[in-house]
Structure formats: structure tokens, C-alpha cells
């Protein structure tokens, strides 16, 4: 069930990237996609009744600790990349005065010419 939902959220984020023309929506969609992957990594292959990987539990009862360790990394990656994207967004907005991808592209093409 959780695997299904993570697929749905991933495609939802991708859909938003395709149809939403606002830059800030693209960043939100990116965060959604990242979260979907984290959700998949944790829930994929999970068996009912497994315990947290802390020493009170028997080894056979423990859930796989590796995805959790990796996904903590992914969360930290997520916040840093979001912060950078937001900082760029604020620069972009100040320089171009719009946050619509299509308008941005047009202005950028005029700059080139």
C-alpha cells in the first residue's frame, strides 16, 4: 500500500513539473518527489512486526537499518537543495520580475539576441 502511494506521489510531482508554470510550484513538486522516494525506500520490502534497529530487539526482528541511514542523508540533501533553489528563486524573481517558466524563457531569449 505504501509502495503504491509513493509511486502515485512521485508521478504526481512529475505531473506538476510538466503542467505548472510557476517556479515555486516546481520546487514544491521536487520536494514531493523526493519525499515519495524516501517513503518508498523505507516501506519497500517492510515486513509486519519488525522492530526498530536498536539493540533491545533480536537481530532477526530488526528492520533493515540501511534504508533509514540513507534516507536521513536524503532528507539533509533535500533541505540543502531546496534552500539553494529558493535562494536562486529569489534572485530570479528580483531580476526577471516573474515566476512563470514560459515568460522567463522568452525574456532570456531576448537577452541573447
Amino acid at each position: 500500500m505504501a509502495e503504491l502511494v509513493s509511486f502515485i506521489i512521485f508521478f504526481l510531482g512529475l505531473y506538476a513539473l510538466v503542467v505548472k508554470r510557476s517556479v515555486i510550484k516546481s520546487i514544491i513538486a521536487l520536494v514531493l518527489m523526493e519525499t515519495a522516494v524516501i517513503l518508498y525506500f523505507v516501506s519497500g520490502g517492510f515486513e509486519e512486526g519488525k522492530l526498530p534497529p536498536i539493540s533491545d530487539a533480536l537481530p532477526e526482528q530488526m528492520v533493515d537499518p540501511l534504508p533509514q541511514a540513507l534516507m536521513i542523508t536524503a532528507i539533509v540533501i533535500g533541505i540543502s537543495s531546496t534552500a539553494v533553489a529558493l535562494a536562486m528563486y529569489s534572485q530570479l524573481h528580483r531580476k526577471y520580475g516573474t515566476d512563470d517558466w514560459k515568460k522567463l524563457m522568452k525574456i532570456r531569449l531576448e537577452e541573447d539576441a
Binding site: 523505507v42 519488525k50 528492520v63 533509514q68 534516507m71 533541505i79
Partner: peptide, 17 residues
């Protein structure tokens, strides 16, 4: 994430994410 026995991750997502 708590349902999936991932307290470390849960804490990280709550505070950071």
C-alpha cells in the same frame, strides 16, 4: 515512518523536512 519502525528517520523528517 513510526509505523515502519524508523524512529530516527521520523525525527529527521519532523525537524528538518
Amino acid at each position: 515512518y513510526l509505523f515502519y519502525s524508523a524512529p530516527d528517520l521520523s525525527l529527521a523528517e519532523a525537524v528538518i523536512g
